[in-house]
């Protein structure tokens, strides 16, 4: 009888080990996971990616270097970069965030070439910049294969809990500064050429739909539309955030019954007395419709 008891597995030991393993895994992966240093932008949290992306958008407005901007955005490894740019741009505008960053992101989303905004340091820069040898640009899908640079070694991996695992990502690409081709973003003032009510019972709300075209009839993204609000304030939005509709399209959700005025671009005429039209539904009821305005450069 005694021999039989001794042959039984030591269940208390097995139970203890299992409990320890579970607690350890919980700690290692949830409570105290490895904290990394020397990471790449693709591992940033969503909020931090937004900050990074906004900065790329702002820098694009001032540098007008789409190559550099896109190489920076590539580092984030977004699945659908264009959609992400448009979404963030819209969110920033809706939240009255950084309008310049939103505009830059919108322009990047539609691939619009721009003239850089002036910066006080530009005069000090050499007229012709000779590009210095630059590190190899990152290649999609090879983020984990390139060697870690020596510079990164000087900032040794410093995990606060456990040793770190540097992500062997390539350098950011430092593309030569673009020789910006002078291309006026704001030419002759836009003139209203059409205004018509749009009745769509399925629309999300009464929209103030603005379409901006150049003299050749092409939609123009990145044009600022300033709208005066009924309470006396004003807000801005930009064309180009809905490239799936038109690059020169922008819209603003009105409150039914309120009257607005707006100005397109710089120096354009103010259009006032804009209010949501009343539309008749199929069942005889009425609803607030949208208003479509078309602007064109003469």
């Amino acid at each position: 009888m005694r021999e039989r008891r001794d042959r039984q597995p030591p269940l208390y030991l097995i139970t203890g080990i299992v409990l320890g393993l579970l607690a350890g895994l919980l700690a290692a992966y949830v409570i105290l996971p490895v904290r990394y240093a020397n990471t790449s932008p693709s591992t940033l949290s969503s909020a931090q990616k937004d900050i990074y992306r906004a900065l790329v958008g702002r820098a694009y407005l001032y540098e007008a270097d789409s190559g550099r901007a896109f190489s920076r955005l590539t580092l984030l490894q977004d699945v659908d970069p264009k959609a992400v740019l448009v979404a963030q741009s819209q969110q920033m505008l809706a939240a009255n965030g950084d309008a310049e960053a939103a505009q830059g992101l919108g322009l990047l989303a539609v691939g619009q070439a721009i003239t850089p905004l002036p910066g006080p340091t530009e005069a000090a820069e050499p007229a012709t910049v000779t590009p210095t040898p630059t590190p190899d640009p990152p290649k999609a899908g090879t983020a984990e294969t390139s060697a870690t640079p020596a510079q990164a070694e000087t900032k040794a991996a410093t995990a606060t809990v456990t040793p770190t695992q540097p992500t062997a990502t390539p350098f950011a690409t430092f593309t030569p500064r673009a020789q910006a081709t002078p291309k006026p973003t704001q030419g002759a003032p836009y003139v209203k050429t059409d205004q018509k009510p749009v009745c769509d019972a399925n629309a999300e709300g009464p929209l103030l739909m603005v379409e901006v075209y150049d003299s050749a009839g092409n939609g123009v993204p990145g044009v600022k539309v300033e709208i005066s609000l009924p309470n006396g304030g004003s807000t801005d939005f930009y064309t180009g955030l809905y490239p799936e509709i038109d690059e020169g399209y922008a819209d603003y959700t009105m409150n039914a019954g309120d009257t607005y005025s707006l100005r397109v671009g710089i120096g354009g005429d103010a259009v006032s007395g804009l209010t949501s039209p009343q539309c008749n539904a199929a069942d005889g009821s009425t609803y607030a419709g949208s208003l479509q305005l078309t602007f064109k450069q003469p």
Binding site: R35, N38, S40, P41, S45, Q48, Q151, A152
Partner: peptide, 9 residues
């Protein structure tokens, strides 16, 4: 991760 944890380059 955070921006503070980015590699130096």
């Amino acid at each position: 991760t955070s921006l503070a944890s980015l590699r130096s380059d």
